[in-house]
């Protein structure tokens, strides 16, 4: 697992794990604008344990998952009294607060970042991406998953039907936190390094955009979003570099990254106008599954 394609595949898989971590709260209607902060919790837990106590990979991974879950649980327990826009603000504030704290803690490397001795290979990350997808698939088949989907569609009716909305929301948020912890740990071990800049507010924005633009109605939405927004800019990287750099300040190296984010922003705006439900919807997925059947019925009709 090396070279450009391998590295790209690993980044894609890290994005997929994180996309599911953000998807789980969003699937119950909670927008998480602090996804990268929960990833930072996992990354710094694993990094600190590995750098200070020389802990091997597997226990560090479990520890990251646990701290991610505990942080998410406490956070959602405290904040669950508030709703909607307050939750978005609280997750955003949490992200800013956490990066602000990490910069000031010398044991975590401060603003210099933390180098991590333990290492995982790229295939481990790919394995975990598959695992995250599989576990979410299984979770959504359970009664709990059904409750999550019901709350996503209408929380008031779900409450009337006897679903403990608050409990399910806290549960989904905690599971998302645990998954983010795992993603952070994988990040730290794969790159052997973690710094605050990788987990800042804009990373959280991108993650939420991946998930929302992929579509939150089905569990395949996050994968579609992550694949689309990781691979498409890579495919067009050469084209982007030839796009004109306007103005006076850009160095040649920044042109393609800037264009990349400008295009992501434009796609976001256009999607919200024309297709706010995301690339993949429940109806769209049904059409793909039963596409042949639909075509046959169409022929019979004529």
């Amino acid at each position: 697992m090396s070279g450009y394609t391998g590295g790209l595949l690993v980044i894609l898989c890290l994005n997929i794990v994180m996309a599911y971590a953000v998807f789980l709260p969003v699937a119950t209607g909670q927008l998480n604008l602090g996804g990268a902060a929960f990833q930072a919790v996992g990354a710094y837990t694993a990094g600190y344990l590995s750098a200070t106590y020389d802990l091997p990979v597997v226990p560090s991974l479990l520890a990251s998952m646990a701290t991610g879950a505990v942080f998410a649980f406490l956070f959602s327990l405290l904040i669950m009294r508030t709703k909607s826009v307050y939750l978005v603000l609280a997750t955003f504030a949490f992200g800013q607060f956490l990066t602000g704290v990490i910069i000031n803690v010398d044991a975590l490397g401060g603003s210099m970042g933390l180098s991590v001795p333990a290492h995982v290979e790229g295939w481990t990350v790919i394995l975990f991406a598959g695992l995250a997808m599989l576990l979410t698939l299984i979770l959504m088949q359970t009664r709990f998953g059904l409750a999550m989907r019901a709350i996503h569609d209408d929380d008031a009716v779900s409450e009337l039907m006897g679903i403990g909305v608050r409990g399910v929301r806290i549960g989904a948020f905690t599971l998302g936190g645990a998954l983010a912890g795992v993603a952070g740990c994988l990040y730290a071990f794969y790159f052997n390094f973690c710094d605050v800049q990788s987990f800042d507010a804009s990373s959280s924005f991108y993650l939420l955009l991946f998930v929302l633009l992929g579509g939150t109605q089905t569990i395949w939405g996050p994968v579609i979003g992550a694949v689309f927004f990781t691979l498409v800019p890579e495919v067009f990287r050469n084209v982007l570099a030839y796009l004109p750099a306007f103005g006076h300040g850009a160095t040649s190296g920044q042109v393609d990254t800037s264009w990349r984010f400008i295009l992501l922003g434009m796609i976001t705006i256009a999607m919200m106008v024309y297709r706010p439900e995301g690339i993949l919807t429940r109806i769209g997925l049904g059409a793909i599954w039963h596409g042949v059947g639909l075509a046959r019925r169409g022929r019979q009709g004529t």
Partner: peptide
């Protein structure tokens, strides 16, 4: 949350546009 998400899109466009134009 559609307007909120849309505003995040505008944030990316404005910020990176200015970054490219003026460093």
């Amino acid at each position: 949350a559609i307007p909120l998400v849309s505003s995040l899109g505008f944030l990316l466009v404005f910020q990176n546009g200015i970054r490219m134009a003026y460093g």
